[in-house]
Computed example of a mutant assay.
Amino acid sequence: MAKIHIVLDIDNVLADRCTLINREFHFLRNGAVLSVNNHLYYIFPGIIPLLKRLYSYDNVEVSFFSSGTKVRDKELIKKLLILALGEGGYQLIKPTLIVRSKDDQTLISSRVKVKDLLKIVNVDDLPRTIFVDDEFCFEPQQAHNFLKSQKVSANAYSEDMGDDSSDYRWQRVNNAYYLAGRLIQLINFLSADPSNTVSNCLFPIQFNNDSSGGYLFNMHVYHDRAIYEYGLAMLQAIDPSLTLVSADFYRESIETIDFSTNLSPYLPRYYSSLEQGMSVDVSIEEFAEISLKNRRAYLSSIR
């Protein structure tokens, strides 16, 4: 079966650097918190199951193209993939894993750099390659490969965000499910017939003609709740506990925890990393004794 290539950006698509206080419990319970090069990164809810799903396809190859530093990118992707696939799964894909960074971008004018997919795939692979990014940083001739992600930040997760798909904050916090819906539909389409290409289906749903003869991105693609629900349903096969993020769901995840109790019911995904060979140097019970003041310092110490 012909290969399908998916190239993922990192920042504001998979993760956001942690700068906000009192967000960690939401991400510890529903995503992950990783420490890379002395910085914390929130992994958005749904991203780990999405990666598991993408790597479950025999005909899909996943690569990464970031605007970060190569050292940071490789370490972050390593830790993220170990969470998603386990140490054994990561070692299996490590020899062929491609991670490109800002030094690999192509300068096309004095001020503009782009991510050229030919740094990852061969030209013959382009018709079956999907590039996911929150910025319009594609090489101009590769516009038909582009799947526009929303720009997600930890700040979008709040108690006063809207609860329907017309609210931009709701769209952003559920971006992993939007991407899952679009990507799985595309994988199914491309897998159905080797003659199918991304240009047949991806560009037309995202761009409209403008009056000057060019194209405008159609922001209304993010309003279709059905695509989020489809993506969620596909990822629930990986993790049945997944749900769309809402203000109530977020509020419940950051409510005060009684630290005299065992934290394991509250942090299942985070502490599941213990089963995958990651080093955490205190037990759940010891973590429960750490004061609120010192909790973030502890998270920063995790390697």
Rank of each mutant, 00 (worst) to 15 (best):
N155Y: 13
L186A: 13
C201Q: 10
V36D: 00
G31F: 03
I227G: 01
V245C: 14
T129I: 02
L83K: 13
D164T: 10
E135D: 12
N196R: 11
M1T: 14
T106C: 08
P127G: 05
E252L: 13
L299M: 13
R172H: 07
S301D: 02
Y57N: 07
L147G: 06
Y230R: 05
Y250Q: 05
L80M: 14
D11S: 01
A233Y: 04
Q206H: 02
N12M: 03
P140I: 00
A297S: 15
Y168P: 05
D133Y: 01
I6Y: 05
V282T: 10
S246A: 02
S66G: 03
K3I: 11
R23M: 08
E252W: 05
F138G: 00
I187Q: 03
F203Q: 12
L28A: 03
H220R: 15
P127D: 10
D11K: 00
I6P: 02
S166E: 09
S35T: 13
V99E: 06
P140C: 01
D163C: 09
N209M: 10
D133W: 01
F146H: 05
I184R: 00
T96D: 14
A84V: 07
E255R: 14
D193C: 07
Y228G: 08
G231N: 03
N37P: 00
R295I: 12
G162K: 06
R295V: 07
S212I: 04
Q150N: 14
K78D: 09
M1N: 12
R17E: 12
D224G: 04
D104W: 05
V221Y: 03
I290S: 02
H223S: 15
P194F: 07
F131N: 08
E87L: 13
A297C: 08
S56F: 07
P45W: 04
A226D: 15
R100Q: 11
D103E: 15
Q276A: 08
F249H: 15
L50A: 05
V123L: 11
P49L: 07
K119D: 12
A297P: 02
F25I: 03
H144V: 08
E135K: 15
R29N: 12
K113Q: 13
V33N: 00
N208D: 14
I98K: 15
R100A: 10
G277H: 01
S291I: 04
E275C: 09
Q171W: 08
S272W: 06
I120S: 02
S158T: 14
I82Q: 03
I82N: 07
Y250V: 01
I302E: 03
D167E: 09
L244E: 05
R23G: 00
D58G: 12
N37W: 00
S212L: 11
D134V: 01
G31I: 06
G86T: 09
L81Y: 11
R53T: 15
A233H: 10
D16I: 03
I284F: 05
Y230L: 13
D133P: 02
D103G: 14
P127T: 10
V152D: 02
N175R: 00
P95I: 00
N12W: 06
I43M: 09
K148R: 15
L83Y: 14
M161C: 06
E75C: 02
L244G: 07
Y250L: 04
L242N: 07
D134W: 01
C201K: 09
H26F: 15
Q276V: 08
D11M: 00
L202E: 05
G46E: 10
V221S: 04
Y271A: 09
V282C: 11
E87Y: 11
K113H: 13
T69F: 10
I238R: 07
S67C: 10
